[in-house]
């Protein structure tokens, strides 16, 4: 194989690792989006809270503890937010939820700034996860392979929950027709709370996983939000596998772009979104959802 092609292929495969990064963040966003109809602009804030909790917990009890506890903590915060804020807006004008979550995002970012300062705070990966693995001539940091595994497990777990459990049946019915679910005598309220907690908890998990790689700073949520939205939009509203496919696409396209035109790295995903929306206005695997029509 010509060397040029090897390097290109390496970028493509690396794109899969980057996809794990996008996927962890976009999956929860998409879940809340499709079930609750809420465009959660505060999703990045939950991601940042996840990273900061990881630092606080990790410094005291080690990385493993923060890996388990930080997402749970963020999920718990998500439950409170769902119970007392989101719940009031499910049937309201979408503009109101935009304002609500935008406000939440700002409050969260400023709170982090007030508590921890604006400067990035250090957080490194545990010794046993640092280092690289060579597969042939390809190089992979162990930590990123671990992240790929975690992302895959998160996707699989969420998919099983939604598609293979009775709880999931209610969720899917709720997405299509919440009124009918109500008429059948099933309360959607606790289901919503759980799903928002899962969605937000995934953002927290992403925060924990990325804290050792990127800097931990208050605006980190904002940085990641736009990319997460692009992934959700490319994947298609309400589509589970669409998000997965879109994350992989964005990761790979970004890798190829960096290979040929480095300055266009971040722009490549917007171009991709533009092209996808031209051909498929509902996104790659977007479904028709009654309540959004």
């Amino acid at each position: 194989m010509p060397l040029e092609l090897v390097f290109l292929l390496e970028q493509v495969v690396n794109g899969l690792l980057v996809a794990a990064y996008y996927l962890l963040i976009a999956l929860g966003l998409s879940l809340i989006f499709s079930l609750a109809g809420i465009v959660n602009l505060a999703h990045g804030a939950f991601y940042a809270i996840g990273a900061y909790s990881a630092v606080v917990i990790g410094n005291r009890f080690g990385f493993a503890a923060s890996f388990v506890c930080a997402p749970l903590l963020v999920a718990a915060i998500g439950m409170v937010v769902e119970r007392f804020l989101f719940r009031r807006f499910y049937r309201a004008d979408p503009v109101l939820t935009l304002l609500l979550t935008f406000g939440l995002a700002m409050i969260a970012e400023q709170s982090l700034r007030m508590i921890f300062g604006a400067a990035p705070i250090p957080f490194s990966m545990p010794e046993w996860l640092s280092g690289v693995v060579f597969v042939g001539d390809f190089i992979y940091p162990k930590y990123r392979l671990g992240m790929l595994g975690v992302a895959a497990a998160a996707v699989l777990g969420t998919w099983l929950l939604i598609n293979k459990t009775s709880f999931g049946k209610i969720v899917r019915a709720g997405v299509q027709n919440p009124d009918m679910v109500g008429v059948l005598g099933i309360s959607l309220a606790p289901v919503m709370t759980v799903m928002v907690a899962i969605g937000v908890g995934l953002a927290g998990l992403a925060g924990v996983m990325l804290a050792p790689i990127t800097g931990v700073h208050p605006a980190m949520g904002n940085e990641i939000m736009v990319a997460a939205f692009v992934v959700v939009v490319i994947g298609g509203l309400g589509s589970f596998w669409g998000v997965v496919l879109a994350a992989i696409l964005v990761g790979v396209v970004r890798g190829i772009t960096v290979y040929y035109v480095p300055p266009a790295a971040e722009a490549s995903m917007y171009l991709l979104m533009f092209l996808v929306l031209l051909v498929r206005p509902r996104g790659l695997l977007g479904e028709r959802i009654e309540k959004f029509e």
């Binding site: 990064y21 190089i139 970004r254 960096v258 290979y259 300055p263 971040e266």
Partner: peptide, 20 residues
């Protein structure tokens, strides 16, 4: 000389270019 957007957070692709 690889130009990096100011909002870039993941450098893995650039690091692979360095390796190359």
């Amino acid at each position: 000389n690889d130009l990096v957007p100011t909002d870039a957070t993941d450098f893995s692709a650039y690091i692979l270019r360095i390796r190359q």
